[in-house]
Design a protein around this nucleic acid. Structure first.
Length: 386
DNA sequence: ACATCGATAAACAATG
DNA sequence: GCATTGTTTATCGATG
């Protein structure tokens, strides 16, 4: 089905920001590149509304670097920064989580979808969200999220407290013992490092804390598992067949979701932390025919992506320990997201034919995914939308 | 039964 | 002196 020139709903245009809503482009190998709305970097609670989303720009690390003086501090910071810029294993899905980080534990922040009360999914999430339940996350995960959600990837203890309280109202009313637990965790866990503040500039007491790069992947994995576990156990997502969807690596599967008449396939939804672009291959697009920027939307070849995938396949074959993708050659459509600058792109297979409605749904659901931080939520939304 | 992990409490020192 | 921060030890329950 061809993309029509239908009028674009205003709310969708708002979500898409200044980026053209629908400007699918085809890469040299036939992949469809679908620009999504700009992501907010650095993330902050104030950047969660659609209006501020447009004006939010990526900013270079500024003053925080001046706070660290020793060698490993610099390593900590640079790693965090670079990975955030080009690493889809970053927690960008947390940054715009809005009130739907977890169906069990809403956040008081405004989500993109919460602006659209007509969205069934948003209503479902709201109605199923007790406010003061204890979050299922361990203190390590909470600290990790707090630090990752900070603009410069480092926070003082007080900042961690505040993030937790702001994000999880439970802790606003809970007894103070949890603060002790946070400090205990910071001290005990190897995942976090204490950084001396620059005494000449520091305001406030204590040190700053950052995530050790070498433990970041593990923390992220734990976080995903926790998130996934509780997402799949929520009523919201109890779509028949959905919970049986395989979850391998960073991808999740929902079955039997048609996105257009010409696409009767099921969908394989690839997480934002897709294997296409990871911290291991940050130079992915540097090898392409040109840098992809939101301004001129120049296309990049996807050869490097294929090479990467080929390498992975070889690794899997060679290693023999990695699980083979059970859905390869199964007719599933794999959707990859990648991020360039402040934009997130959705890469569709070249054979994917989308009508405008499907594109809108994809864009909205990608936004929802970012806002909700849940791929299964996205899948459930598709079920409801179609 | 055992080890591990996470949560919690408490004591204590260092710091602003 | 006080509150906050950081470290350490101990205990308990859940889990594999």
């Amino acid at each position: 089905m061809e993309a029509s020139s239908d009028t674009i709903p205003s709310h969708t245009a708002t979500l898409a920001g200044s980026q053209p809503l629908y400007s699918p482009q085809t890469s040299s190998n036939g992949h469809v590149l679908l620009p999504l709305s700009p992501l907010s970097f650095p993330p902050s609670p104030s950047s969660l509304s659609p209006t501020t989303l447009e004006s939010t720009q990526s900013s270079p690390l500024s003053n925080s670097f001046s706070h660290c003086s020793d060698e490993h501090n610099a390593h900590c910071h640079s790693s965090a920064y670079s990975s955030d810029q080009d690493d889809l294993t970053c927690l960008s899905w947390l940054h715009q989580r809005g009130s739907n980080l977890l169906p069990l534990q809403p956040l008081p922040k405004i989500s993109l979808l919460s602006k659209q009360p007509e969205t069934p999914r948003a209503l479902s999430a709201e109605s199923l969200s007790p406010t003061l339940n204890k979050p299922p996350y361990s203190f390590s995960s909470l600290i990790f999220m707090a630090i990752e959600d900070s603009p410069n990837k480092l926070l003082p203890v007080k900042g961690i407290y505040e993030w937790i309280v702001n994000s999880f109202p439970y802790y606003g009313t809970a007894a103070g013992g949890w603060r002790n637990s946070v400090r205990h965790n910071l001290s005990l866990s190897k995942s976090f490092r204490r950084i001396q503040r620059d005494k000449s500039q520091s305001v406030g007491k204590g040190s700053l804390w950052c995530v050790c790069p070498e433990y970041r992947a593990a923390l992220l994995e734990v976080l995903k598992k926790t998130h996934h576990y509780h997402s799949t156990n929520s009523n919201l997502l109890s779509v028949p067949g959905l919970l049986e969807g395989a979850d391998y690596g960073t991808s999740m599967v929902c079955d039997s979701v048609d996105i257009s008449d010409s696409l009767s396939h099921s969908l394989l939804l690839s997480a934002p932390s897709s294997h296409i672009l990871t911290s291991d291959n940050p130079t992915l697009f540097e090898n392409s025919s040109g840098a992809l920027t939101p301004d001129h939307e120049e296309l990049v070849t996807m050869e490097s992506v294929e090479e990467e995938e080929d390498e992975e396949e070889e690794e899997e074959e060679g290693g023999g320990e990695m699980e083979k993708d059970p859905l390869s050659n199964s007719g599933y459509i794999e959707l990859h997201y990648y991020q360039c600058h402040q934009y997130q792109y959705l890469v569709l297979p070249g054979e994917a034919e989308l009508d405008l409605e499907s594109v809108e749904i994809l864009q909205l659901d990608a936004e929802a995914q970012e806002a909700a931080g849940s791929l299964l939520d996205l899948a459930g939304g598709w079920h409801q939308c179609l």
